[in-house]
Design a protein around this nucleic acid. Structure first.
Length: 339
DNA sequence: CTTGATAA
DNA sequence: TTATCAAGG
C-alpha cells in the first residue's frame, strides 16, 4: 500500500507524550486496515459478534482512540471518498491478490496450518459496513471524522498545510507526496508490532517525518519527489522494473523532467500526467468542521455490548477511561476546547 | 492491536 | 517493574 520511501526518508523517533495537545488527522482507511489485518485469533479468524459481523476494527478504535486521548492527543479521522479513475487497475489487482489469499486462508484454516494467520492478514478487506460501523462508534465517542472528496491521505495533508491539524497520522509515506508538512507513523500505545510472517514482536516507537527536512536531505523539490515516487511505483502505477528509490533519486537529479528520464530508460508510464497532477493538486475540500464532543456513554455501550457482543465489563472500563481523559483534556484551557 | 493475567 | 502469552468478539 502506498509508495515505499522508507529507504530514503529519515525519521525521528519520538515519545507519544511529545504529541500532547496536538491534533492528528488520521488516515482512517490506513488505520482500519491495520486493525482488521492484525486483530485476529490464532487461526486467523477475525473477532466477530454473535451475528457473524467482523468487529476487530471496533475493538481497535475504542482502545486506540481512548489511549490517544489519555495522552492528550486530539484525533480527527479522515475517510476516503472516490478513488481517481486511474487507480482502477491497482484496485483490481489488489482484489485479485486478496481473493487468492482468501482461498489459501480457508484451506490453511481447514488444515489447521500455522500459515492460516498470514493468509488471513493478506485477505483483509474493508467493506461499507465496516466503514459505517467505524463512523458510528467514532460519533458516539465524540471523535470528529471527515469524508475526503477523494484520497483521505490527500485531504489530511491539506488539513495540516492549512493548520487545521498538526500532523497526518498514517503508516504510508503518501502524505509526503501530497505535501503534508509533518506526519507521524506508529501512533500506537504498546509500541509492539508483529514482524511479518514471524510470530515475534519488536518495539516500535512513534516517528515523525518532516516534509521540508526530507526535501533538504535529498536535495530535491516536491515535484522531483513525486516523479521519484512514480518511477518507484505508487498506488496509481506499478513503477519501472528494477528502479528503486536510490536509482530513482539519481534519475530525478540528473534530468530536468520525466520525459527525459523515460527516454533514457526506454520506458513509458501510463497516465503519468494525470498521476502527477493528482499528487500536486488532489481533490480536497474546505467543507469540514473539527469538533470534539462529549462521549455518549449509553450509546457506546448499547452499540458495542448489545449490537456487537462486547463484554460489558471491558466496555465499562474503557468508557470510564475515555470520560476521565476527555474531562482532563477539556479542563486544559491552553488547548482549543473540546466542546 | 490492546488488555489483563501471570511469571520472572 | 518488565516480559510473556492468551484472549478479546
Amino acid at each position: 500500500m502506498g509508495v515505499d520511501l522508507s529507504d530514503l526518508v529519515k525519521t525521528r523517533e519520538i515519545e507519544l507524550k511529545e504529541l500532547n495537545g496536538k491534533i492528528i488527522a488520521i488516515d482512517a482507511f490506513n488505520t482500519l486496515y491495520q486493525f482488521l489485518s492484525i486483530i485476529r485469533q490464532q487461526d486467523g479468524s477475525p473477532l466477530t459478534d454473535d451475528r457473524g459481523n467482523v468487529t476487530s476494527h471496533l475493538s481497535g478504535i475504542i482502545y486506540r482512540v481512548t489511549n490517544l486521548i489519555e495522552e492528550g492527543i486530539k484525533p480527527v479521522f479522515v475517510f476516503d471518498g472516490k478513488p481517481p479513475v486511474f487507480k482502477a487497475e491497482t484496485i483490481k489487482a489488489r482484489v485479485e491478490v486478496r481473493e487468492a489469499a482468501k482461498q489459501m486462508y480457508e484451506a490453511a484454516k481447514a488444515a489447521g496450518s500455522a500459515d492460516a494467520y498470514k493468509y488471513a492478514m493478506a485477505s483483509t478487506s474493508i467493506n461499507a459496513q465496516i466503514v459505517q460501523d467505524s463512523k458510528e462508534l467514532l460519533g458516539y465517542m465524540g471523535i470528529p471524522y471527515i469524508l475526503a472528496p477523494s484520497e483521505g491521505e490527500a485531504q489530511a495533508s491539506y488539513m495540516v498545510k492549512k493548520g487545521s491539524a498538526d500532523y497526518v497520522g498514517s503508516q504510508d509515506y503518501d502524505s509526503l507526496l501530497f505535501g503534508a508538512p509533518k506526519f507521524v507513523r506508529n501512533i500506537a500505545i504498546t509500541g509492539k508490532r508483529k514482524v511479518p510472517r514471524k510470530n515475534i514482536y519488536v518495539d516500535v516507537k512513534p516517528e515523525v517525518i518532516e516534509f521540508q527536512e526530507v526535501l533538504d536531505q535529498l536535495e530535491i523539490t516536491r515535484s522531483q519527489l513525486i516523479d521519484l515516487a512514480i518511477l518507484v511505483g505508487t498506488d496509481y502505477n506499478p513503477g519501472i522494473y528494477k528502479v528503486g528509490p536510490k536509482t530513482a533519486l539519481k534519475l530525478v537529479k540528473k534530468h530536468d523532467n520525466m520525459e527525459s528520464i523515460l527516454t533514457e530508460l526506454g520506458q513509458t508510464i501510463e497516465n503519468y500526467e494525470e498521476i502527477k497532477e493528482f499528487f500536486m493538486n488532489p481533490p480536497i475540500t474546505d467543507d469540514y468542521i473539527i469538533k470534539w464532543g462529549k462521549p455518549e456513554t449509553g450509546k457506546i455501550k448499547e452499540f458495542l455490548c448489545e449490537e456487537h457482543s462486547f463484554s460489558a465489563d471491558r466496555v465499562d472500563k474503557v468508557i470510564e477511561r475515555l470520560n476521565k481523559a476527555v474531562t482532563e483534556t477539556s479542563k486544559q484551557k491552553t488547548l482549543s476546547s473540546w466542546f
